[in-house]
Design a protein around this nucleic acid. Structure first.
Lengths: 270, 270
DNA sequence: CGCTTTATTGAGAGATATCAATACTTGTGG
DNA sequence: CCACAAGTATTGATATCTCTCAATAAAGCG
């Protein structure tokens, strides 16, 4: 795992072409700019480069330099303590910003490591601020992705406390498939980018427990998993695991505003 | 629990006096403004009011209107699902901003409820943006508290996954005592503002388990608890619970930059 | 003073972790 | 091309921790 500065990074075409045609631009920091404005961004502000699987994008504890946009590939974020303990906090797919964890105190709070070969754009935080000064549309454009990240962290926290192993897995699979779909992949048939070990760690369970949960979901005819290849057979049993009383449909289906929380626990109220 | 709009809220003195002398101003949204600038804030932008214990400041799902600063008291934040399930996500003390959870998608993501009588300042999000336009010092002033909140949520997430009940309690007590101290209270002797039920829910354990953990910490001579009154007898056994190898001292004591993570797990590396 | 709520304690049940054995995958070198 | 080694995943048996259920005690409140 080599830090970014050691990689053979090279900028490609002139910036204009790069950003304007980028598939992830709407989710990127310049998403609110007009095409004309994007073309005025100084070419040297944006660096684009590739990373091989297992390479480190930035390290926990190092000072905030860049904010990144993941264009292709997949990245895991992990807290990494000096005694070797690691906690996976997030799996990121194309279109997602990386580095927001450093906004709070100027240091990155996690390691980010590619889990497949990836392509990333980088802008320095300082240059982004300069852009914010020039383009009013960018004024608060970090607030929103930060807020979105905060919300999704809170959902993860909720799930960790309130779901058992099988439910955690069902919830994760549904959610991750949606993210895959949003990133342009098949929602029902794809390759999981992370190892069992990383996934178990993320879900707060041991790999043996994860393995058993996978077996259970296969036995009820919800999914088929072959190593990292995942196929959804039927989502219905997954939803039933997460919501035996089928409250989900009732509540989620107004205004298409789906609650991020699994509705189970029909039994008792704490 | 009555929403804020139903409370008899009245603004007090003219704004100048209010903000300039406020003990929590440095942590507030206007913390980066000069005294002169603060005095130019339109008086009607800031509303200050009191809430009795158990009153709702804002409700999950309602549209973002205000950002709040807690001046006195204590507030709990909770996810609240339609089937009655609740998850406490945070306990806030004076000086903390409230409402940041709504930045992500324009709706508050939690209920906030006072757990003792409190005093709060409110500014509408729109008016704050107007202020941001006028005062360059405010340009990115939501980014930082958002980032700080994100980081503290990630620490909470780490603890929930990696600590057992006794460790969760020890970690919480040390951390909360520090927050109390920062808010101006005695670090070693104070009244816990939350019920056992709320605390257990926050820690992701049942009240019986919490009660047993309290008993254990009392038996090893770390604390004395009488209902909500907490007294620290010695922090040493608490740190030993969280870090049997005493790595914490070694690593935390350079540059006063204390790691937010408890260092235990000297045994195995996942 | 009784009633309701909140907290503590005990005994047994249940879920996940731990330890251990086996199978499968991938890569290497003869 | 096969044999072997190293890493990864699955499955089984047992241990451990927390939950659940239940009883009791203490505190707050009308």
């Amino acid at each position: 795992m080599t830090p970014i500065s050691n990689t053979n990074s090279k900028s490609l075409e002139p910036l204009k072409a790069v950003c304007v045609n980028c598939a992830t631009r709407t989710q990127c920091l310049n998403g609110k700019l007009t095409v004309e404005e994007v073309n005025r961004i100084p070419a040297n502000f944006i660096r684009r480069f590739t990373l091989k699987e297992g390479q480190v994008l930035y390290k926990m504890g190092s000072p905030l330099t860049h904010i990144y946009n993941l264009r292709f590939g997949a990245v895991k974020s992990e807290i990494s303590l000096s005694n070797g303990i690691q906690q996976k906090t997030r799996f990121s797919l194309p279109g997602e910003l990386l580095g927001l964890d450093a906004i709070g105190n100027g240091k990155y709070q996690v390691n980010t490591v590619t889990i497949k070969s990836s392509e990333v754009c980088a802008i320095t935080y300082d240059n982004f601020k300069k852009m914010s000064d020039e383009f009013p549309a960018l004024k608060n454009s970090l607030e929103n992705p930060l807020g979105v990240l905060l919300n999704s962290t809170n959902v993860h926290l909720f799930d960790l406390i309130n779901l058992n192993a099988k439910e955690k897995l069902a919830d994760f699979l549904i959610d991750f498939a949606n993210q895959m779909s949003k990133a342009g992949f098949d929602r029902d048939n794809f390759r999981l980018p992370m190892s069992r070990s990383d996934l178990a760690n993320y879900l707060g369970i041991k790999i043996e427990t994860l393995s058993r949960s996978i077996t259970q979901l296969e036995k009820i005819g919800a999914i088929r998993i072959n190593h990292r290849h995942l196929e959804f057979v039927s989502r219905k049993p997954l939803f039933e695991i997460l919501d035996p009383t089928e409250l989900r449909e009732k509540h989620a289906s107004k205004k298409g505003d789906v609650s991020p929380y699994p509705l189970k626990f029909e039994k008792r109220k704490p």
